[in-house]
Simulated scan of single mutants.
Amino acid sequence: MTPRPAPRRPVGTITRGTTNPNRLRRVDRWMAWALREVLRGPVYPPVVVDLGYGASPVTVLELAARLSGVRPDVRVVGVEIDPERVARGRAVADPPRVDFALGGFEVPLPGGGDPLVVRAFNVLRQYAEEDTAEAWRQVVDRLAPGGVLVEGTCDEVGRLATWVDVRRGADGAPAPRSLTLAWRLAGLERPSVVAERLPKVLIHRNVPGEGVHALMQALDAAWARHAPLAGWGARQRLVACAHDLRADGWPVLHGPSRWRLGELGVEWAAVAPQRA
């Protein structure tokens, strides 16, 4: 990868900064499981970035604690475009284990180097859909070999969340692999409520003719069909829905152990935008 000149100012715009403790627990849990082989690979030390962490550094600290069980020497860096937010982070930093840096999509790291994983949650929500490709490209360009961008959105308390697993393709361009949907199952009326928290690349695609719309329709239909299982619990009901979708040809990922947690992943090809 040809090094790019350092930008004179952080790339991007300041987000609202909304955050809450445990807001990102669902994606943290998935990262600790799905990316464990990436984190345990030969990169030393592995650096994970929480990009655009918001007004409080709490999600950076939580991510460091949760990933330390996968790789004790992991370094987590919170990157924010707002100097005041970076100052709040540095007040609780514990370098090199946990550190903070001023920046945006150029993903600067203290001391240089390349991040192995970048998590960007609720960052692109305020951007236009057409800006997504360039933001992905900028971040993917910064990844260490074999690295991962996890880009997604969640509600204010983390009960609904979605994210895309993006890698670097053979041509160097961003290559999304999967979309994961995650719910707090207790009290869930219908799975398609998660559509309001789809990543920016998909949130405007929940219309007829698009794969993500078909997925929402199929999920709701299966959920209604398995209403008799409600007495056994929402976990059993979602597991039954996942089996139905897979039987109908949807490329549903993983298995019951993840579905019972309120996670359902599908291969990206099934939901990739179909029109310009």
Results as ranks from 00 to 15, higher is better:
Val166Met: 13
Val58Tyr: 01
Ser192Asp: 11
Glu156Pro: 00
Asp248Leu: 09
His254Leu: 09
Val79Ser: 00
Leu188Ala: 09
Val77Asp: 07
Glu263Gly: 02
His243Asp: 15
Arg23Thr: 08
Gly249Glu: 11
Thr162Phe: 15
Arg16Trp: 05
Tyr127Glu: 06
Leu264Ser: 14
Pro5Val: 08
Pro176His: 07
Arg88Phe: 01
Ile81Phe: 04
Glu210Trp: 07
Trp183Ser: 11
Val150Cys: 03
Tyr127Val: 10
Arg168Gly: 03
Pro191Phe: 07
Gln126Thr: 04
Pro7Ser: 11
Leu39Met: 12
Val118Asp: 05
Gln126Ile: 04
Arg177Leu: 12
Leu39Glu: 15
Thr18Gly: 07
Arg88Gln: 03
Ala234Gly: 15
Gly209Ala: 04
Val86Gly: 07
Arg190Gln: 13
Val157Phe: 13
Thr18Arg: 11
Phe105Val: 03
Ala55Asp: 07
Leu261Asn: 11
Arg260Phe: 00
Arg237Pro: 12
Glu263Thr: 12
Leu229Gln: 08
Thr15Ser: 03
Gly231Cys: 03
Leu261Lys: 11
Val252Gln: 08
His254Lys: 12
Pro72Val: 03
Thr59Gln: 04
Pro191Trp: 09
Thr162Lys: 15
Gly262Trp: 10
Leu181Val: 05
Pro176Tyr: 08
Ile203Glu: 10
Trp30Lys: 00
Gly152Trp: 05
His254Met: 06
Val11Lys: 06
Asp165Arg: 08
Tyr127Ile: 10
Trp250Pro: 03
Asp114Ala: 13
Leu149Phe: 04
Gly113Ala: 14
Trp232Ile: 11
Arg177His: 11
Met1Pro: 14
Met1Lys: 12
Asp244Ala: 13
Arg25Pro: 00
Leu143Glu: 06
Ala230Thr: 09
Ala128Tyr: 12
Arg167Leu: 06
Arg8Thr: 08
Arg36Leu: 14
Thr132Ser: 14
Arg36Ala: 12
Gly78Phe: 05
Gln138Ile: 13
Gly146Asn: 08
Leu63Lys: 03
Ala230Val: 02
Leu39Lys: 08
Leu143Ser: 07
Pro42Trp: 15
Pro273Arg: 06
Val79Cys: 01
Arg177Phe: 12
Gly255Glu: 14
Leu39Arg: 09
Pro10Asp: 04
Ala224Met: 14
Pro10Phe: 07
Ala222Asp: 08
Val49Arg: 01
Ala230Gly: 13
Val239Gly: 15
Pro273Gly: 04
Gly41Ile: 03
Glu196Asp: 14
Met1Thr: 15
Leu124Gly: 02
Ser56His: 11
Leu202Val: 07
Leu51Thr: 01
Pro42Glu: 10
Arg4Ser: 05
Val193Gln: 07
Trp268Thr: 02
Ala93Arg: 02
Pro7Met: 12
Gly69Asp: 13
Asp248Met: 10
Val140Lys: 03
